[in-house]
Amino acid sequence: MNILIVDDSRTMRMMVRRTLRQAGLNVDNAVEAENGKDALDKLRDFKPDLILSDWNMPELDGLALLRTLRTHRIMIPFGFVTAQGSPEMREKARLAGANFLISKPFTADTFAEVLGPMIKAA
């Protein structure tokens, strides 16, 4: 499985990679982007099976990234990994077309539980 990791924090991108490994998830290739705009640029050459994105980012935030993708009928599975975990924000994410929202801080168990079935199915 190929994954695009979108987060403006370099450390958080590294932690997502590390947690994917700790969760025993089989990721062939993980590419990083530092905001939504950078993610759209990366998507010209990289075709991920899953996008993991932060919500609050400069230039283009995660919700705007998701809405841009869905507007262009790009239906790559998309999940937020974010400090925004309130029911209201979860609903906003769902309505925009997100497949899931993982709240920071996250554990390997959470990644395995949420991402495991998607990665096995890919």
Binding site: S9, A83, Q84, G85, M89, S103, K104
Partner: peptide, 17 residues
């Protein structure tokens, strides 16, 4: 950024750093 979670419940909409 992660600590912002403690301020979400008391406010409507997004609370961010």
């Amino acid at each position: 950024n992660v600590v912002s979670r403690y301020f979400h419940d008391a406010h409507e909409g997004m609370v961010q750093l």
